[in-house]
Amino acid sequence: MSALVIDGLTVVFGAFRALDGLSLAVDPGEVRAVIGPNGAGKTTLLDAITGITRPRSGRIRLDDGRDLTRASEAEIARAGVRRKFQKPSVFPALTVRENLALGCGPDCPARERPARLARALAETGLEARAAVPAGALAHGEKQWLEIGMVLASEPRVLLLDEPVAGLSDDETARTADLIGALRRPDRAILVIEHDMAFVEAVADRVTVLHEGRTLFEGAMAGARADARVIEVFLGR
C-alpha cells in the first residue's frame, strides 16, 4: 500500500512535455529522492502534486484513495500533502511562532496547537527566535523555519524541493539529520535534490527522471552503476 501514487502523469506546456506519462509510488515511511538533470521535470512534478500546475492526463492519489488530481492547492494541503519550497518561503511580516501557527494549517485542532508549535520550535532549534519576525532571520534559519512550518502540520506526504540548495556543508549536514528525524512510519517523504552526497545520506530509494520519464528507480548505489543514468548525467 503506497502513501502517494502517481499514475501516468502528463504535463504539457505548449508543445513541451514536461512530464510524459510518469508513474511513481512512494510508500509510507519511505524517503524517496527524485534526481535528474535540469529540465527533467522534477519541479514540475512537485507543482503537479501540490496543485499549482494542472496535468493534462494521469492521476495523483493518496493511500486512502483520495484523488488530488483536480483538487485546489488548499485542499491538497489540507489532505496532508505539504511542500517545502526551494526558495525559503516564510512570511516576513510574521514572527517565527506565527509562521509556525500558520503552518499548522486551518484544520489544526486548537488543543494540539501549542504542543505542535513547541515541538516544531524544538526540532528546528528556533526556540530562542520564536518572537522574531521571520524577515529578520538568516537564510539557513528561514530554511529550518519553513521545514518547521511543514512539520507543524504533521503531513502524511512531505515534499522537499532542494532543501540544501545554497546551504553550507555544516547546514547541509544538519538538514540531513533533520530529515532523518522527520521520517515516520506513516509518512512518505519525497526529496528533490542535486546534491548526490546528501541524497545518498537521506534517501531509501531514488527515482531518476529524464525528459519527463522515469529512467531508473532503485537504490542509490544502483543508480550510480546504471549506464543510462551515467550517460544522462555526464553526457557520455
Binding site: I52, E73, A74, A77, R78, F91, L102, G105, P106
Partner: peptide, 10 residues
C-alpha cells in the same frame, strides 16, 4: 500562493 499551499483558501 504559499498561504494556499498551507491549506488556506485565500
Amino acid at each position: 500562493a504559499r498561504l494556499r499551499t498551507l491549506g488556506y483558501g485565500t
